[in-house]
Every structure is written in structure tokens, then in C-alpha cells.
Amino acid sequence: MAALETADLLIPLEVYLAAGIHIGTHVKTNDMRPFIYRVRPDGLYVLDVRKTDDRIRVASKFISRFKGDKIFSASARQYGFKPVEKFSSIIGGRSLTGRFIPGTFTNPKLPNYAEPDLLIVTDPRADWQAIVEAAEVGIPVIGFCDTDNRSQLIDLVIPINNKGRKSLALAYWLLSRQILRERGELPPTAELPASIEDFESKVLVAEEEYGGYDLEG
């Protein structure tokens, strides 16, 4: 039965669960209600892996219809920097990591001005400026949403744990593999030359995370 259940998933269910892609938060929004599988006794909401898998398939089909250099992926989250940069280099897109400079999509006078056709965001709350500017210029947005995110101004939700290091690495690895398969650049059963570990960020220690301030003092 377990074999039958995992047969139609992109990767074995155990890999999904090991990366913690299904782990949500203690907060549930109405927008994410269709993607929530259950609530654990400790109050943590759990995402439906089957729906995540399905959405990654749909998103890869959708992304493969756009030209590579017009696909922008943004991450204001530190754990998303490396996955986004790796993903962009594989699919031939552009990455926007760290602070999103306001006007990047709307102000032609800026040196970093760009005209994308599609935006992929790692966390809709952190990447809100990019989403608003994408709405101003009228381009579709794909968002990795956790149980506590709203899907406002997002056209395609991919429900994953967007706070986890391994979870983000797995999601971007899977998405890039599927996009290459959809484009025909990778045979349907072939694997990516890059492994999931290549997409993973390093573990952040508190000192680095808070700009070197002494947290104990």
C-alpha cells in the first residue's frame, strides 16, 4: 500500500518527510486551509505532501513556458539565498537575494532595473515588496507558502515549509529538475547533476544571524 502511495510522487515520501517539507507552523490562515492535512496534538499544522508534489509538477509546467532569462526568483530569507541562486543558475534565470531594492521592476532610472515575465518568491511576507512591484507591472507570481502565509497577489501557491533549510533546498532542487525535464533538456528519468546538498545553505549561528551582536550580554 505504501509503495502504491509513493509510486506517483516525484520522489519517495520518506525524502519529503526527512526534509521536513510538510512541517507547518502554529498559525493557520484561511488561504492555506485547502493545503493543510491535519493539526498535530502540539498545535502544529501539517501540510499535505501530495498537494505539494502536485503543485511542484504544475509549477514546473508553468515555469517552463517562460524564457529562462525572464524568470526572476527572490528570497529575503537567508536560508533561501543558496537554493535560489543555484535554482536560477540551473534554469538560466536571475536571482534576487537579500534586500529587494524598491523600484527594481518599476523605476527604469535605477541601474538594477529589470523587466521580468515571471516572479518566484520564497516567502510572500518577506518578499512583499517584490510581489507588489510584480503586481504593478502585471506579471504572474508563484509563491512558496507556509501555513501562516496569505496568498494575496499570488497566482500559484506551492505549499511547503519555507522556513527550513533542508525543505527549501529540496523544493528548489525538485522544481529545477522538473523544469529541465519539462523543457526536454533532461530525459524523463534522469537526475540533476547537482545534488540536494548542493542547494542547502549552511547552518546559521546566532552571531552571524544578528549581525555579530553579542546576544548574551
Binding site: K61, A135, L153, D155
Partner: peptide, 23 residues
Amino acid sequence: KGVKLPCPSCGEVVFWRCRKCRD
């Protein structure tokens, strides 16, 4: 300021979403 997008699944139909419905 609506957005025009092909169907994410089939890609055969191109539809529009208005700003209010996206919001």
C-alpha cells in the same frame, strides 16, 4: 492592473485576473 497568465496546468487557455480578485 490585472495580470495575464496561461493556465498553470494545461497552458492552452490564457486568462486574466483583476487586481481586486488577486488582493
